[in-house]
């Protein structure tokens, strides 16, 4: 994962990914459909960004059945929470420094 000199993380340089991480930082877990509704993005768009975050071990996927319906929910990993906080700090520092 590429981290530039200021502490900003390349993997978060996208509004949808920022949105996903923001939701998961303040909620224990959140399912696909509610993420889609909260962020106002399409299925495909959301799925591809979730995949990228998952592959980087920033979020965890929990698949389960609610009744007969499959339900996929997501939560943030310790690693993801740490990196996101660092990214957030870097954003704030950049804005305050200039």
């Amino acid at each position: 994962m590429k981290v530039n000199i200021s502490g900003l993380n390349k993997v978060f340089e996208n509004r949808v990914r920022l949105g996903i991480m923001s939701v998961l930082m303040v909620n224990d877990s959140y399912d696909f459909n509610n993420l889609k509704a909260t962020l106002g993005v399409t299925d495909g768009n959301l799925a591809s960004h979730l995949k990228a975050l998952e592959e980087n071990n920033l979020i965890r996927v929990n698949k389960q059945f609610i009744g007969r319906k499959p339900n996929t929910s997501y939560s943030v990993t310790n690693n993801g929470a740490l990196l996101f906080r660092t990214h957030l700090k870097a954003l704030e520092d950049l804005i305050n420094s200039q």
């Binding site: 920022l18 991480m21 939701v23 930082m25 909620n27 959140y30 909260t38 962020l39």
Partner: peptide, 10 residues
């Protein structure tokens, strides 16, 4: 965006 999404989802 981060602030808004955090607030609206919590």
């Amino acid at each position: 965006v981060i602030k808004k999404v955090m607030e609206e989802s919590s």
